[in-house]
Write a protein that binds this DNA or RNA. Structure first.
Lengths: 110, 110
DNA sequence: TGCTAATACCAAGACGGTCAATGTATGGAG
DNA sequence: CTCCATACATTGACCGTCTTGGTATTAGCA
């Protein structure tokens, strides 16, 4: 999987995952891996900066917890984050159908 | 439309367009615009470098022509280009269904 | 003891996209 | 006739995001 494709959908996917409840970096990686059918292995080097970015933009909030001796930083989507998520979801759909249009595959998918 | 989404699909779309016959930069922009339903306005600053890149990789060949006083540089897909196109198409499908999986929208689209 | 998993973070570098400028030629508005 | 828009290609500066890979901590296991 060409990593360049991820650019721009990373944040969308993170917001989506967090829209279903708070989570932390390490777990988000697992969730995305599972839900993508094993295709997307988010790298820490892109995940954490993205998380910080989204937090700076107030789309996420965060808090630390302790779990069996290990520190976890939970991220929680904000109201603004949900709004952005909705916008990005629809942007993604527009984008995907645009690409499919160019590829001559506008109908259906597996 | 967030331009970051384009990263990685630009070349795919260009190869696709060229798989249907030789074309030149300016025309490729129009073709993609039309076939994407008016959504993708390729910028010259990304299009031409991409064209040159693909040519360097021997996925495209090129030749100049003259048309009503204006110079045109036609690009033509190579056999290697077609192979790459096939690979990228399937990569795109995997990618799109991965994203849709994360978004919980694996079925159908308009 | 030392390795692995869980967990978070950061710095350096590559790469591709945007903006905007440059250059040439044709054709139409005034 | 002049000016501007359109057709067409190229390039350079800038920016943002991704990858790689290294740091750091704690728990648990060989």
């Amino acid at each position: 999987m060409d990593p360049k494709l991820l650019t721009g959908t990373l944040e969308l996917m993170m917001l989506e995952v967090l829209s279903q409840g708070p989570s932390y970096g390490y777990e988000i990686v697992q969730t995305v891996l599972t839900r993508s059918g094993g295709h997307f292995e988010l790298k820490e080097g892109s995940l954490y900066p993205a998380l910080h970015r989204l937090e700076r933009q107030k789309l996420l909030g965060s808090y630390w917890t302790e779990h069996e001796g290990r520190r976890r930083k939970y991220y929680k989507i904000t109201a603004a984050g949900r709004k952005t998520l909705a916008a990005r979801r629809s942007e993604w759909q527009t984008f995907a159908s645009g690409v499919n249009g160019v590829l001559g595959m506008e109908y259906g998918l597996a």
